[in-house]
Nucleic acid binder design. Structure first.
Length: 461
DNA sequence: AGTAATAAACATA
DNA sequence: TATGTTTATTACT
């Protein structure tokens, strides 16, 4: 129960519940069993640790422990980082982290050792124990070469990409956005694989980025349905993608609200973040002009590269996170976003998830736009997901918000086509109901990290 | 036996 | 100090 509460607090509870939060009862927070739960996360619910909570420790423990969660570094915020569901990781269950992944024995041994020595470490055996941990770090990287390709997905899950770097990476990634290109290739083949492969192939940073992206993707809807829909309505998707909400609508058909909800959640959360967070917010915020520069900055790098490529990723949703600060400071529950919480069907299937665009996406979009049009300001306004979500009480799910964006988006949506295919393919591949893993390349910017990114990495301007 | 949750220790910025 | 990671313990199935 406590856990639940904690989660509630951590995340925007209301919606979560609607989604199927109930499952949580049994499987608290960390349990992946409840798809619902997962979905919630996927949808973009962010975990925020509340200070002082007794669960805090537990949560942290879980977050770090399970590969399912991805940490997004939030420089802007400061220390705290955001946690998101690892799209891939999310699928499988919890994975015991890297080390163990393959080596049951070893892991066990390790445990044994640990027991024996670890604790004692202070006394003696520190080295060995440490050894383990270090080792674990290795594994952390998805990039670790070989293994990944096949089991990767599993491995992946197992090993959680450590993110800390990711966050920063993300920002970095922003600039690198291009990765998409690579991704495209890979992705075309396998979405999921892409992820892994990318990680493997790509340098750590990139990998991280990917990871980050994935994290972002979390938001994205699931999959199984998507393919269908997508395939069916690739065109639609584009639009929709422009604003996920829409998709939701389409898909929603089956699920109806549920789909939206997720989106909403993401938005909300994201919104909340943004609001709290930093520069991003400012950037995103239409009202705040300053961002533009930033935006531009971002854009510049991006455009050139991604330019057309923006693709579906753009569509990706980003989960917003409620930064702690927000949570604590702003809304106690983190529900800030709740605003829109609308009734969603609890039985949302991951597969059915629609594509949602999260603020991040928007952001990405924005960025894109920005470059495109000199009128960055406008683009920004439109693009800024934050704006939409936050600004409009109505959840993204509502078409309203998107409309404006859509318009702009349409601009590049065209470009998206390629990505779309990619996405579709990927989905098909995943079929399982994975999330879309689009690489948020663009979106990244919007990402929490984005803020960072904006401010840090490439934004250096 | 395996999994999960919590508590605590430890590490790092 | 805050955050994150790891280990150990305990409880449940």
């Amino acid at each position: 129960m406590e856990m639940l509460r904690g989660l509630e607090q951590l995340c925007s509870g209301a919606r979560l519940r609607e989604l199927g939060w109930g499952s949580l009862e049994k499987a608290p927070f960390l349990c992946w069993r409840g798809k619902d739960w997962m979905q919630c996360f996927r949808w973009g619910v962010h975990l925020c640790l509340e200070e002082g909570t007794s669960q805090e420790n537990s949560i942290r423990h879980n977050l770090s422990l399970h590969s399912k969660f991805i940490k997004v570094h939030n420089e802007a915020t400061g220390k705290s980082s955001w946690w998101m569901l690892n799209p891939e990781g999310g699928k499988s269950g919890k994975a015991p982290r890297r080390r163990a992944a393959s080596m049951d024995n070893s892991s066990k041994l390790a445990k044994v050792r640990g027991k024996a020595s670890r604790k004692k470490p202070p006394l003696q055996s520190a080295p060995e124990s440490t050894a383990d941990s270090p080792g674990s770090q290795f594994p952390k990287w998805p990039g670790s070469p070989s293994s990944r390709s096949n089991e990767d997905s599993d491995m992946w899950n197992t090993f959680r990409p450590r993110t800390s770097s990711n966050a920063s990476t993300i920002s970095a990634r922003l600039s690198p956005i291009l990765t998409e290109q690579d991704d495209l290739h890979d992705e075309e083949l396998l979405p999921s694989l892409v992820y892994s492969s990318a990680s493997s192939n790509v340098p750590p940073t990139v990998t991280e980025e990917l990871e980050l992206i994935d994290g972002l993707n979390l938001m994205s809807p699931s999959s199984s349905t998507l393919p269908t829909q997508q395939s069916a309505s690739s065109g639609q998707i584009q639009r929709d993608s422009s604003f996920s909400l829409r998709n939701a609508g389409g898909q929603t058909t089956s699920f109806g609200n549920s789909l939206f909800n997720p989106v909403d959640i993401s938005l909300q959360s994201s919104v909340s973040h943004f609001s709290a967070p930093q520069s991003l917010e400012a950037l995103l915020t239409p009202s705040s002009p300053p961002p533009r520069d930033v935006m531009m900055t971002q854009v510049d790098p991006v455009l050139p590269q991604t330019g057309n490529r923006m693709n579906s990723r753009t569509l990706l949703l980003l989960g917003g996170q409620a930064s702690q600060s927000k949570m604590s400071s702003g809304n106690p529950r983190g529900k800030p976003a709740e605003q829109q919480t609308e009734p969603v069907s609890a039985s949302v299937l991951p597969s059915t998830l629609p594509i949602v665009t999260s603020p991040q996406n928007t952001a990405s979009i924005t960025s894109l736009k920005a470059p495109l049009s000199a009128t960055t300001s406008q683009s920004v306004q439109l693009g800024s997901p934050l704006l939409l979500s936050s600004a409009s009480p109505a959840p993204l799910g509502l078409n309203q918000d998107r409309l404006p964006i859509d318009l702009d988006i349409d601009m590049y949506m065209e470009d998206l086509e390629c990505d779309m295919d990619y996405i579709i393919n990927s989905e098909l591949m995943d079929g399982e109901g994975l999330d879309f893993n689009f690489e948020p390349i663009l979106s990244t910017p919007s990402y929490p990290s984005t803020s960072q990114a904006s401010s840090h990495t490439w934004v250096p301007s």
